[in-house]
Structures are given as C-alpha cells and as structure tokens.
Amino acid sequence: MISVKNLHKYFGKLEVLKGVNLEVKEKEVVVVIGPSGSGKSTFLRCLNKLEEPNDGEIVIDGIPLSSDTNVNAIRREVGMVFQRFNLFPHMTALENIALSPQIVRKLKKDEAVAVGLELLRKVGLSEKAYEYPERLSGGQQQRVAIARALAMKPKIMLFDEPTSALDPEMVGEVLAVMKDLAQEGMTMVVVSHEMGFAREVGDRVIFMDEGVIMEAGTPEALFNRPQNLRTKAFLSKIL
C-alpha cells in the first residue's frame, strides 16, 4: 500500500531524513515512535506531499509520488489528522466534514451532508453537527477532524501525534475512534507515543531517531525486548 525507499529530506542544510525505507501492507497499522526532532512527523508529511522529499521513492497504492504526479489525486486517497486538529473555524462540524466531498469528489450537497451525519454518528458526535469548532472540546474537535478526513473515503490514514495536544481525559475518546478504524481494516500510519494504543492496535512499531528507522518490530517485541541501544534508552524514558 505504501512503499518508501531511501527517502531523504533536507531543511536547508539540515538533513532531517537520512534514507528512510518502509513498506506498509494493506490494512496494516504502523505506529511510529521516537524523540522529537527525529524526523517522524516530517516522514509522515512526505507521504502526502505536505513536504517535498529531496531524494528517494514513494509509491502510494501503486502510484509513484514524483514531482509531476497529480498531488491532489494522491491526497484524495490519503487522509491526514493533525496534532492541532486544524478544523476550519468558520464552519460547523458538519460543514467541515461535508465540504471537501462536495468540491473535490463532486458529491451533491445532500449526499455530502448524509455522509457527514453518518460519520459524526460513527465518531459519537451526532448532537454536535451544527456546532462551531470553538464550542467543542479538544477531543471532540479531533474526532471531527478524523471524520472530516474519512469523508474523502481515503485508503490510507495518517495521524500526526493526534492526541499530543489533548488534555489527558480526552485522549481515550480519540484513541477509541482510531481503534475502531483499525478494526475496520483501514491502513494507518500513526505517529504517537500512546504505548497502550500501540500495543493493542499496532501491527508494527517503528522507532525513528536522527532521521532513520533504528528499529522495527511487533509492539510486543519492540517494547519488551528492544535490541537497539537508542531504542532502549528512549523507551526507558517514556515507559
């Protein structure tokens, strides 16, 4: 589903990604962990071209991402959820969700609204359809953001630290939605430090540091028997 070979990314002279290789199979849930500045968010953002890689090869669902690929076509298939939600503040929850199906997928308005209401029900926020984002808690906003990404019927979902900006009591509700999604067979790449989630839902955990993948394995193996010294050091700090 996702194939990444030798991915390099520079910010000016700083090399943030130093040759990342990764294959993600359909329906797989990959959790990416690592210290801040390790390049994990940049890596994720390269997967839907919010960042332009300097070198390497990315193939999404059989389509190579090169400079002349239609980037909007890729983004339609790859949903993204951000750390800071990025809901559109001038639209209600429902409008946030129903907008892009209308203007990108060319759905009729009532069809898009039906999709939106269904997704709100799915994330447990039916009663908040007509609220503006400012009236929602962080957890609710993030659930709307997930629904908004799902409205495009993506084949892959990327999550960039989806619970890091949330108050602790709201983390659970967002993770529950993500877990449902994983169980429905969504292909997911999740940058997150939620170990419970990684253990329970993740098929594979990847430890990134200094712009490369240092270690990868099943959650059980990586958390309980880390091989790499840096992985050990990092896990000892956060577990």
Binding site: N72, R75, M80, F82, L87, F88, L99, V104
Partner: peptide
C-alpha cells in the same frame, strides 16, 4: 491565517485555488 488551515485543506485534496 494559520498554515495548518491550508495544510488541512490541501490534505483533503483541495487545489490551492479551492
């Protein structure tokens, strides 16, 4: 306007004009 707004819009497949 926060950069996240246009990133969110673009990540949903909208063109720059949209």
């Amino acid at each position: 306007i926060d950069r996240g707004q246009s990133e969110a819009a673009r990540s949903l497949g909208m063109t720059q004009a949209q």
